[in-house]
Amino acid sequence: MSDILVSEQSAPGAGSGRPAGRLLEVEDLRVEFRTRDGVAKVINGVTYHVDAGETLAVLGESGSGKSVTAQTIMGILDTPPGFVTGGQVRFHGKDMLKMSGEERRRIRGEGIAMIFQDSLSALNPVFTVGFQVAEQFRIRRGLSRSDAKKRAIEMLDQVKIPNAKGRYSNYPHQFSGGMRQRAMIAMSLALDPEVLIADEPTTALDVTVQAQIMDLLGELQRERQMGMILITHDLGVVADVADRIAVMYAGRIVEEADVYELYGKPGHPYTLGLLNSIPRMDEKGQELRTIKGLPPNLMNIPPGCPFNPRCPMAQPVCREKVPPLLQIGASRASACHFAEELVSRD
């Protein structure tokens, strides 16, 4: 097992000679969806970064823009209806949005890889799982059929699919949900990417399987020193694995903080609201305090702070001025006019 990993790490290509600086940075990204019914401003100035070996959790509810951001990074945003209207996505300091299609394709898989929530539809049902993993090696690394097969079996073994050799020629529908998710991880890690984007990787899985998959991801990340962007809505999963958290709401980052700080003392009323509204298994007689109302219509985001109609702390200023994402401590930032107040309160 371990010597396979060593050979994997020294594979030619992406792993060597990483320049200093940020691995992946998103800066002031803006995306809108132009539909028949109007323009939906899906991402309105998102800035975050991830470094090697670190896990950034992007937390948000549906419609917050967390998945669209990831799609834009990967360059798989559907255009139309989605259009990037501003900002940069820098990989090793180079703006990917300005690259040619060919350059971007090269980064995909070797530089940045992605795994999806729905492994059943992400795998092609008419090819065997092994073939789909081996294909990466054949097409991108130019390996021969038999070499590619050998490497694919190694990969399947690394993601702890029991009897990898035997299961190489199984079809996706013959795998259980957890096994399919492992196969997808094998596929996306085949080219040894530096950044892995995991978009709700365990949402469709049962809790016991979820624990297995999160363990596996953590382990692979440590071994390979990958940067990981974990996109999820699950505050429990985030608490277990994240280093830093970016909370998204209506296409903006409303808070970014170290995981302990964020759970210990949320710096934005939305984060606080989320934490108060989840039932906790370790608390008895807990009262759920809900966030009133609904997320805004993205075609008609309220002026000022997008959260103001639902915010218990809202003041007149919140309806007029969009609060910028400001540093409120050594390792945290919040986009709330009253962030300092919120953090210093007991």
Partner: peptide
């Protein structure tokens, strides 16, 4: 089953 449920508290991890 109970042990696998993630609890939203990083200090317990």
């Amino acid at each position: 089953l109970l042990s696998a449920v993630p609890v939203p508290d990083p200090t317990l991890r």
